[in-house]
Design a protein around this nucleic acid. Sequence first.
DNA 1: AGCGATGTATTTTTT
DNA 2: ATACATCGCT
Length: 728
Amino acid sequence: MNLKELLNKEQYEAVCHKDGPLLILAGAGSGKTRVITYRIANLISEHGVAPANILAVTFTNKAAGEMKSRIRHVVGKPADNIWMSTFHSLGCRILRAHAEKLGYTKGFSIYDEDDRERLVKECMHQAKVNEKEMKPYQIIRYISDIKNQLLNPRQYMEMAQDYNNKIVARIYVVYEEKMKRNNAMDFDDLIKLPVELLKSRNDMLEMYREKFRYILIDEYQDINNSQYELITLLAKKHRNICVVGDDDQSIYKFRGADITNILEFEDDYKDARVIRLEQNYRSTKIILKAAHNVIRNNTNRKAKELWTENNEGEKIIFYYTDDEIAESEAILKEVDRLQRGTETQLRQMAVFYRTNAQSRVIEDRFRRGGIPYKLIGGLSFYGRMEIKDLLAYLRVVSNPQDIISFKRIINVPPRGIGDASIDKVEENAMNANLSFIDGLLAADNVTGVKDSTKNTLKKFAAFFKNLSENKENMKLRDLVREIVNRTGYKDYWKSDASPKSRERVENIEEFESAISEFEESNEKASLEDYLNQVALLSSVDKMDEKADAVTLMTVHSAKGLEFDVVFIAGMEEGLFPHKNCKDEPGGLEEERRLAYVAITRARKKLFLLSAASRRQTGTKRITKISPYMNEIPPELLEHRGRMPVKTVEEKYLKGTIEDTLQDMEPEFDMPVDVAPTYKPGQKVKHKVMGQGQIMKIEPHGDDFKLTVVFKKHGKKVLSANHAGLEKI
DNA sequence: AGCGATGTATTTTTT
DNA sequence: ATACATCGCT
């Protein structure tokens, strides 16, 4: 392997660096993956480092798998001994080996946000917190933050000062108790608990420090506090830590990612070597220039500019459409044209959007237009209700302590078991110090539950107890078949002929074949392995590389990927940048980084789309073009679709009000049907002022403030209820 | 007690 | 639009 020929000067330096801390600042498309894989291969083949002594953390399991197979090409089978995965998979692997030391068993469940919310609701109930006071998902956010700070309930209790924090503290205590009783971990635990293990057990710390002599972390800019702690603990002794990242691509602040980790790496390791990769091999000059002109508006960043030897390329297309339907139409049209006209394959095209909700319209249009697509994230296969139900059935078998999963499926399909009965049985189990499943078996001791219900409960529990005891001897597929048939789950959906139910039956069958497939390709895998894999695979991991179809995904999911042609839909103020980011400190800068990430995914062709109006949660809103569009130099853009128009006011001052009626871009942020009587653009007549046009509607108490431009008197602000306007 | 129907608020992004 | 809670009916 002649590295000098394969790499540029900086890449070569990074690959050949052996011992000591190394920071690689790798811009978008600068060949980072290449550097990581060659560096690991080089450590093994040139420096004789044992693969088992290498730990590499990547952002997706897919990236890990790809790198591993490339390394295998160079060093062969020993590459399998490298620990290469995401942070959460790493944590899970450590915990599976040492669960008992922390008071869990190996079969612990991993709770996703959905399970967490169910649990939090129970906790709120138990801690006597009204759901109106704080919403469950807010509590989850708080708890997640607390766990990222590695705080236990007792520690947090002492710190909690203000009203909200005190409420959260009360719930957090109950939450942790219940999690432990359910033998369950959330995503945050998968990092927090390994840290606790290493901190409390010196033998464990020493063992893992000796094992992971060489550590490599990708996407370091998106690491949160607990992940930082974990890595720092492990790396402190040998200090062979190489981190790779780009401060301009930090987009996960909402889940605790802390950009200062990368900005301060050189303070943590004073002797750190720093290498910058600034040559871009991915995009055209025009795309790169546009990206730079957007990101340069951020103040909190390391100054830098990527460059490329690639072609100038084509102009970026700005597509302005009437509404989101027309937007999807435009995307479809362009996709179709590219697919026919050039050599671009569908798999080389992607549509990005800021929020998952935007995907539906695009999906519909693609489906009707006969263009195959793959949807990443959102309500994907594993997010479907029926699949989650089946997974809950499996989790009950794997972890009979998992009360949340039990409750999910205990009355699905309906067996006449209601909340009241469950509560009574659960309370009885608690008092008698029984597990939930044994509590069900002991249903006879409970008062106030019908005999028929008791029998159902007992039968139900006995069935799962039996499966749970025999799970080792059963094939996974048989386990699933047994569950699906014996619980009547499939028949339940089959009995209903609605298209929705038929789809569910199909999904159930697809699940059965998916599990068979898993079993065939992972012979030694247990039920627990399967459940872990399902819980920890990211949406991008589940992406089908082979299918020739257009990819639909959020900008967040797009990180680390690249496509020949990229469409970014919904370039509108309030959507991208999203309105919820306005109040958060640094929120707008983070949104801009998101835009930067989105733009830099494109190799050859970039489409940016805005719709003049958009329906959101049922109501239609007039939109404004995203400010990021103004940051891109106009000479890089080519316009398609309807023309952006000047404001009503501007037009009015120049011409007649009639001219403005056709094309206008009113400035308001109200649902159109909130003010039933008035609409922006509506021409009105006032007793004194005469003819005018409504430009802006804002809520004002129970009333609305109307901004009206009158022909004779210019702009006035009036109260909707008192102005006495007449529509004309 | 359990189920279905009606009314109402709404989550940006993800392991 | 959709999910979810609450309410009233069986």
